[in-house]
Design a protein around this nucleic acid. Structure first.
Length: 115
DNA sequence: TTCCTGACTCCAG
DNA sequence: CCTGGAGCCAGGA
């Protein structure tokens, strides 16, 4: 058993925290999370963090994180890949051809919501 | 150790 | 409108 220390609370832990707070039926982008945490240029690190997210507890709803266009660019990292879209549609987010329909209407921006 | 890649985004041409 | 390069930083070979 490992205990979380303050010194372990890095950028990645912050990413997981933010993602875990995304409400059901809402989505956000890598860039928004990165921007909220300090620099939008670290958006790649957010994606990298998501790759590690599947093993974490409590679970991280990585399917609610897409790229800035509402495109499910990370679906191939789910097993099966379709599970990302299915999870979203279960929450009322329609997806066609890897694109979230009415994306801007589902956006949850941590910069505004998570002040 | 160095080199390459990536679930991104922005900016220039 | 589309394409390519740069910047970010951690891991794997």
């Amino acid at each position: 058993m490992s205990v979380k220390r303050a010194s372990d609370y890095t950028f990645f832990e912050n990413v997981f925290d933010v993602v875990r707070q995304i409400p059901r039926g809402r989505v956000t982008s890598y860039g928004m999370i990165a921007s909220y945490l300090g620099s939008k240029q670290t958006s790649r690190m957010v994606g990298w963090a998501m790759n590690r997210a599947h093993d974490l507890h409590p679970p991280v709803p990585a399917h609610r994180v897409v790229n800035r266009n509402g495109l499910l660019t990370g679906k191939h990292h789910f097993s099966p890949p379709e599970s990302m879209q299915l999870s979203l549609e279960e929450e009322g987010v329609n997806v066609i051809d890897d694109q979230i329909i009415d994306f801007k209407n589902h956006i949850w921006n941590p910069c505004e919501e998570l002040l």
